[in-house]
Amino acid sequence: MNTVFQKSPMLADMPLHYCPGCTHGIIHRLVAEALDELSVGDRTVGIAPVGCSVMAYNYFTCDFIQAAHGRAPAVATGVKRARPESVVFTYQGDGDLAAIGTAETVHAAARGENITAIFVNNAIYGMTGGQMAPTTMPGQVTQTSPYGRDPKAAGYPIRVCEMLATLDGTAYCERVSVDCVKNVRAAKKAVKKAFEIQLAGKGFSLVEVLSTCPTNWGLTPVGALEWLREKMMPYYPPGVYKDNA
Protein backbone atom coordinates (compact mmCIF):
# COMPACT_ATOMS: atom_id res chain seq x y z
CA MET A 1 0.00 0.00 0.00
CA ASN A 2 1.30 3.45 -0.88
CA THR A 3 1.24 6.15 1.75
CA VAL A 4 -0.43 9.15 0.13
CA PHE A 5 -0.67 11.31 3.21
CA GLN A 6 1.28 11.29 6.44
CA LYS A 7 1.09 13.50 9.48
CA SER A 8 4.17 15.65 9.73
CA PRO A 9 6.71 14.32 12.24
CA MET A 10 6.89 17.89 13.50
CA LEU A 11 3.38 17.41 14.94
CA ALA A 12 2.92 15.45 18.16
CA ASP A 13 0.62 12.48 18.17
CA MET A 14 -2.23 13.95 20.16
CA PRO A 15 -5.66 15.44 19.55
CA LEU A 16 -5.80 19.23 19.15
CA HIS A 17 -8.22 21.08 21.43
CA TYR A 18 -9.48 23.49 18.77
CA CYS A 19 -13.22 23.78 18.04
CA PRO A 20 -14.68 21.90 15.07
CA GLY A 21 -14.10 23.87 11.90
CA CYS A 22 -11.43 26.11 13.43
CA THR A 23 -8.57 26.70 11.01
CA HIS A 24 -5.85 26.90 13.70
CA GLY A 25 -5.26 23.16 13.09
CA ILE A 26 -4.63 23.64 9.37
CA ILE A 27 -2.15 26.42 10.11
CA HIS A 28 -0.31 24.20 12.59
CA ARG A 29 0.03 21.58 9.89
CA LEU A 30 1.41 24.08 7.38
CA VAL A 31 4.04 25.28 9.84
CA ALA A 32 4.99 21.71 10.75
CA GLU A 33 5.29 20.62 7.12
CA ALA A 34 7.39 23.64 6.18
CA LEU A 35 9.83 23.05 9.05
CA ASP A 36 9.98 19.40 8.19
CA GLU A 37 10.67 19.99 4.50
CA LEU A 38 13.48 22.38 5.46
CA SER A 39 14.88 19.76 7.88
CA VAL A 40 15.29 22.28 10.68
CA GLY A 41 12.99 20.75 13.29
CA ASP A 42 15.81 19.81 15.65
CA ARG A 43 17.03 23.39 15.88
CA THR A 44 13.66 25.13 15.92
CA VAL A 45 12.18 26.97 18.89
CA GLY A 46 8.52 27.98 18.75
CA ILE A 47 7.03 30.72 20.90
CA ALA A 48 3.40 30.15 21.89
CA PRO A 49 1.15 33.14 22.57
CA VAL A 50 -1.69 33.71 24.97
CA GLY A 51 -4.81 32.92 23.00
CA CYS A 52 -6.49 29.81 21.65
CA SER A 53 -3.12 28.51 20.46
CA VAL A 54 -1.52 28.86 23.90
CA MET A 55 -0.97 25.11 24.03
CA ALA A 56 0.87 24.95 20.72
CA TYR A 57 3.82 23.89 22.88
CA ASN A 58 2.15 20.51 23.18
CA TYR A 59 1.37 20.09 19.50
CA PHE A 60 4.77 20.59 17.90
CA THR A 61 7.67 18.24 18.53
CA CYS A 62 10.29 21.01 18.64
CA ASP A 63 11.36 23.03 21.70
CA PHE A 64 8.76 25.56 22.77
CA ILE A 65 8.39 28.55 25.07
CA GLN A 66 5.04 29.85 26.24
CA ALA A 67 5.15 33.67 26.34
CA ALA A 68 3.13 36.33 28.17
CA HIS A 69 0.27 37.90 26.17
CA GLY A 70 1.73 39.83 23.24
CA ARG A 71 5.37 39.36 24.18
CA ALA A 72 6.27 36.53 21.83
CA PRO A 73 8.37 38.71 19.48
CA ALA A 74 10.46 39.95 22.43
CA VAL A 75 10.88 36.41 23.76
CA ALA A 76 11.82 35.24 20.26
CA THR A 77 14.36 38.07 20.11
CA GLY A 78 15.94 36.84 23.35
CA VAL A 79 16.21 33.29 22.02
CA LYS A 80 17.53 34.29 18.63
CA ARG A 81 20.14 36.65 20.10
CA ALA A 82 21.24 33.93 22.50
CA ARG A 83 21.26 31.15 19.87
CA PRO A 84 21.59 32.70 16.40
CA GLU A 85 21.89 29.24 14.82
CA SER A 86 18.39 28.26 15.91
CA VAL A 87 15.24 28.76 13.84
CA VAL A 88 12.78 30.81 15.87
CA PHE A 89 9.11 31.43 15.14
CA THR A 90 6.19 32.97 16.98
CA TYR A 91 2.61 31.82 16.52
CA GLN A 92 0.21 34.60 17.51
CA GLY A 93 -3.41 35.65 17.29
CA ASP A 94 -4.59 39.14 16.38
CA GLY A 95 -5.20 40.29 19.94
CA ASP A 96 -1.77 39.04 20.90
CA LEU A 97 0.15 40.42 17.92
CA ALA A 98 -1.78 43.56 16.98
CA ALA A 99 -3.20 44.87 20.27
CA ILE A 100 -1.32 44.10 23.48
CA GLY A 101 1.84 43.15 21.59
CA THR A 102 1.86 45.85 18.90
CA ALA A 103 5.03 47.46 20.21
CA GLU A 104 6.87 44.13 20.40
CA THR A 105 5.74 43.24 16.86
CA VAL A 106 6.59 46.57 15.25
CA HIS A 107 9.98 46.80 16.90
CA ALA A 108 11.00 43.22 16.19
CA ALA A 109 10.21 44.01 12.55
CA ALA A 110 11.95 47.39 12.68
CA ARG A 111 15.10 45.75 14.07
CA GLY A 112 14.98 43.24 11.25
CA GLU A 113 15.01 40.57 13.91
CA ASN A 114 15.78 37.34 12.08
CA ILE A 115 12.66 35.50 13.22
CA THR A 116 9.39 34.39 11.64
CA ALA A 117 5.94 35.37 12.88
CA ILE A 118 2.90 33.28 12.01
CA PHE A 119 0.03 35.68 12.51
CA VAL A 120 -3.43 34.16 12.78
CA ASN A 121 -6.02 36.83 11.98
CA ASN A 122 -9.50 35.64 12.89
CA ALA A 123 -10.95 39.10 13.53
CA ILE A 124 -11.83 38.25 17.12
CA TYR A 125 -10.51 37.31 20.56
CA GLY A 126 -11.21 33.60 20.46
CA MET A 127 -9.97 32.28 23.75
CA THR A 128 -11.69 34.79 26.00
CA GLY A 129 -15.07 34.21 24.36
CA GLY A 130 -15.32 36.51 21.37
CA GLN A 131 -14.50 40.11 22.22
CA MET A 132 -13.62 42.78 19.67
CA ALA A 133 -10.09 42.47 18.30
CA PRO A 134 -7.93 45.11 16.59
CA THR A 135 -8.80 43.30 13.36
CA THR A 136 -12.57 43.05 13.95
CA MET A 137 -14.44 44.28 10.85
CA PRO A 138 -16.46 47.52 10.88
CA GLY A 139 -20.00 46.54 11.79
CA GLN A 140 -18.97 43.12 13.12
CA VAL A 141 -20.90 42.05 16.21
CA THR A 142 -18.79 40.71 19.06
CA GLN A 143 -19.28 40.37 22.80
CA THR A 144 -17.85 43.86 23.34
CA SER A 145 -19.23 45.43 20.16
CA PRO A 146 -22.83 44.21 20.55
CA TYR A 147 -24.17 46.83 18.09
CA GLY A 148 -21.43 46.11 15.58
CA ARG A 149 -17.98 47.70 15.59
CA ASP A 150 -18.48 51.41 15.16
CA PRO A 151 -15.21 52.88 13.88
CA LYS A 152 -16.19 56.29 15.29
CA ALA A 153 -16.05 54.89 18.79
CA ALA A 154 -13.88 51.81 18.45
CA GLY A 155 -11.51 52.83 15.68
CA TYR A 156 -10.61 51.00 12.50
CA PRO A 157 -9.18 47.54 11.95
CA ILE A 158 -5.41 47.28 11.57
CA ARG A 159 -3.91 45.90 8.36
CA VAL A 160 -0.77 44.38 9.78
CA CYS A 161 0.99 43.36 6.55
CA GLU A 162 0.52 46.77 4.97
CA MET A 163 1.81 48.45 8.13
CA LEU A 164 4.87 46.23 8.56
CA ALA A 165 5.76 46.38 4.88
CA THR A 166 6.73 50.03 5.38
CA LEU A 167 9.53 49.04 7.75
CA ASP A 168 13.00 48.49 6.35
CA GLY A 169 13.63 45.64 8.78
CA THR A 170 10.75 43.59 7.37
CA ALA A 171 12.26 41.26 4.81
CA TYR A 172 9.12 39.40 3.87
CA CYS A 173 5.42 39.64 4.62
CA GLU A 174 2.54 38.01 2.90
CA ARG A 175 -1.17 37.64 3.64
CA VAL A 176 -2.78 34.31 2.85
CA SER A 177 -6.06 32.57 3.53
CA VAL A 178 -6.93 29.00 4.41
CA ASP A 179 -10.53 29.08 3.16
CA CYS A 180 -10.05 26.58 0.30
CA VAL A 181 -7.59 23.96 -0.92
CA LYS A 182 -6.00 26.28 -3.45
CA ASN A 183 -5.41 28.98 -0.87
CA VAL A 184 -4.14 26.47 1.67
CA ARG A 185 -1.48 25.44 -0.85
CA ALA A 186 -0.52 29.07 -1.38
CA ALA A 187 -0.41 29.55 2.39
CA LYS A 188 1.98 26.63 2.74
CA LYS A 189 4.30 28.17 0.17
CA ALA A 190 4.25 31.46 2.02
CA VAL A 191 5.05 29.84 5.37
CA LYS A 192 7.93 27.91 3.87
CA LYS A 193 9.23 31.02 2.15
CA ALA A 194 9.14 32.94 5.46
CA PHE A 195 11.35 30.30 7.07
CA GLU A 196 13.68 30.32 4.07
CA ILE A 197 14.06 34.06 4.50
CA GLN A 198 15.06 33.46 8.12
CA LEU A 199 17.49 30.71 7.12
CA ALA A 200 19.07 33.11 4.64
CA GLY A 201 19.49 35.63 7.48
CA LYS A 202 17.51 38.30 5.68
CA GLY A 203 15.50 39.65 8.62
CA PHE A 204 11.96 39.73 9.91
CA SER A 205 9.38 37.60 8.13
CA LEU A 206 5.65 37.39 8.79
CA VAL A 207 2.80 35.43 7.28
CA GLU A 208 -0.68 36.69 8.09
CA VAL A 209 -3.19 33.90 7.79
CA LEU A 210 -6.87 34.82 7.51
CA SER A 211 -8.49 32.27 9.76
CA THR A 212 -11.95 31.35 11.06
CA CYS A 213 -13.52 31.29 14.48
CA PRO A 214 -16.87 29.60 13.85
CA THR A 215 -17.55 29.37 17.59
CA ASN A 216 -17.35 33.06 18.35
CA TRP A 217 -18.55 34.25 14.96
CA GLY A 218 -21.71 32.22 15.64
CA LEU A 219 -21.48 30.43 12.27
CA THR A 220 -21.16 26.87 11.04
CA PRO A 221 -17.69 25.84 9.87
CA VAL A 222 -18.81 26.22 6.23
CA GLY A 223 -20.62 29.49 6.96
CA ALA A 224 -17.45 30.76 8.62
CA LEU A 225 -15.38 30.01 5.53
CA GLU A 226 -17.91 31.92 3.42
CA TRP A 227 -17.85 34.86 5.83
CA LEU A 228 -14.06 34.90 5.69
CA ARG A 229 -14.20 35.00 1.88
CA GLU A 230 -16.95 37.59 1.64
CA LYS A 231 -16.15 39.92 4.49
CA MET A 232 -12.52 39.55 5.39
CA MET A 233 -10.74 38.95 2.10
CA PRO A 234 -11.86 42.23 0.47
CA TYR A 235 -10.74 44.22 3.52
CA TYR A 236 -7.58 42.19 4.01
CA PRO A 237 -6.46 41.38 0.45
CA PRO A 238 -4.18 38.36 0.24
CA GLY A 239 -0.84 38.99 -1.43
CA VAL A 240 2.84 39.59 -0.99
CA TYR A 241 3.43 42.96 0.69
CA LYS A 242 7.19 42.78 1.00
CA ASP A 243 9.75 40.43 -0.47
CA ASN A 244 13.47 41.04 -0.08
CA ALA A 245 14.39 37.49 -1.09
Binding site: I65, A67, R71, A74, V75, T77, G78, A82
Partner: peptide, 25 residues
Protein backbone atom coordinates in the same frame (compact mmCIF):
# COMPACT_ATOMS: atom_id res chain seq x y z
CA UNK B 1 24.82 41.35 22.76
CA UNK B 2 23.65 44.78 23.84
CA UNK B 3 20.11 45.53 22.77
CA UNK B 4 18.13 48.65 23.56
CA UNK B 5 14.57 47.37 23.71
CA UNK B 6 11.42 49.33 22.87
CA UNK B 7 10.27 49.20 26.51
CA UNK B 8 11.01 47.61 29.85
CA UNK B 9 8.24 45.12 29.10
CA UNK B 10 10.05 44.04 25.95
CA UNK B 11 13.45 43.99 27.71
CA UNK B 12 12.32 41.64 30.46
CA UNK B 13 10.69 39.36 27.90
CA UNK B 14 13.93 39.28 25.91
CA UNK B 15 15.53 38.19 29.18
CA UNK B 16 12.84 35.52 29.45
CA UNK B 17 13.73 34.23 25.98
CA UNK B 18 17.51 34.42 26.43
CA UNK B 19 17.35 32.75 29.83
CA UNK B 20 15.09 30.04 28.42
CA UNK B 21 17.81 29.49 25.81
CA UNK B 22 20.30 28.91 28.62
CA UNK B 23 22.53 31.99 28.64
CA UNK B 24 23.41 34.33 31.47
CA UNK B 25 21.58 37.61 30.90
Amino acid sequence: VFLQAESEVAAINMIYGASAAGVRC
